[in-house]
């Protein structure tokens, strides 16, 4: 599993310490609304499902790998 072993771990640049890669909507901006299908195949509208509550929106690589 050599390909899986990070030889050199890149620095974990965490916003706001870095402007080296895009991080999307800025603090203070509205998070653009979206409608996507969930794991049951049902459409989920962010604004509707959030229902004026606080929210955590996590973008991640894949559930498959």
């Amino acid at each position: 599993m050599t390909s899986d072993t990070p030889k050199e771990t890149p620095p974990n640049l965490r916003f706001p310490e870095s402007g080296e890669f895009p991080t999307g909507p800025e603090v203070g901006e509205l998070l653009p609304d979206f409608t996507l299908l969930d794991q049951h195949g049902a459409p989920v509208n962010f604004a509707g499902a959030r229902d004026r509550k606080r929210a955590l929106v996590v973008f991640h690589r894949s559930a498959r790998w």
């Binding site: 203070g28 901006e29 509205l30 604004a47 606080r54 929210a55 996590v58 973008f59």
Partner: peptide, 11 residues
């Protein structure tokens, strides 16, 4: 990455 969103919908 992760966004925290307030009740007003802002990041």
């Amino acid at each position: 990455g992760t966004y925290a969103v307030g009740e007003d919908g802002r990041v």
